[in-house]
């Protein structure tokens, strides 16, 4: 408690202990839920786009509840952009790999030649790979849209 009080005294924007504590407790669960939505898209409503938005919203929540700098310490800008590129690359890379392995573009069942799991299982697993790529790309783009728009582009100070 004393530590919390001192931290509040020294931080620039920390005016509400309630909001900061709530966000600190909620963010891991929000991120876990985002991962669940991505991974469980095969069995329930969900998938890459929705899960990616939830993951991105957790970082936006840190930026809104604490201050702009704190959200930058949780996720570096460079890491964020690398993750976004990686996400788009996973999707197009899997698709291209299917074509290179001798099948049609985005026909995951030919990846069975690479790792023998069974052609039908590969169609299921290929969807999973692709959803992970979509999730990463959407998360990164959401977070970087928020950062760039709320700070006017210089990532110096925002809301």
């Amino acid at each position: 408690m004393k530590l919390l009080q001192e931290r509040i005294k020294h931080s620039k924007f920390g005016e509400s202990i309630i909001i900061e504590t709530t966000i600190r407790i909620m963010v891991p669960f929000i991120q876990l839920f985002g991962l669940y939505v991505i991974v469980h898209g095969h069995y329930s409503p969900g998938g890459g786009f929705q899960g990616g938005v939830i993951l991105g919203a957790s970082f936006i929540l840190i930026g809104l509840g604490y201050d702009f700098k704190t959200s930058l310490t949780r996720m570096k800008e460079k890491t964020n952009i690398i993750l976004g590129n990686l996400g788009a690359l996973i999707f197009t890379g899997v698709a291209l790999l299917c074509a290179l392995m001798g099948g049609l573009f985005l026909d995951y069942s030919v990846l069975d030649k690479l790792i023998p799991l069974g052609a039908i299982e590969w169609r299921s697993f290929g969807i999973f790979l692709v959803e992970v790529g979509v999730g990463l790309a959407v998360m990164s783009i959401m977070v970087s849209l928020f950062w760039d728009i709320c700070s006017g582009g210089d990532l110096d100070e925002g809301l």
Partner: peptide, 25 residues
């Protein structure tokens, strides 16, 4: 054909994967 119980995901990710790819792009 795909062993995915959620038909929406099967269509988005497999049958209409081309569309989803360009949505991401």
């Amino acid at each position: 054909e795909t062993q995915v119980p959620n038909i929406v995901t099967a269509i988005l990710g497999d049958y209409r994967g081309y569309d989803t790819m360009f949505e991401t792009v």
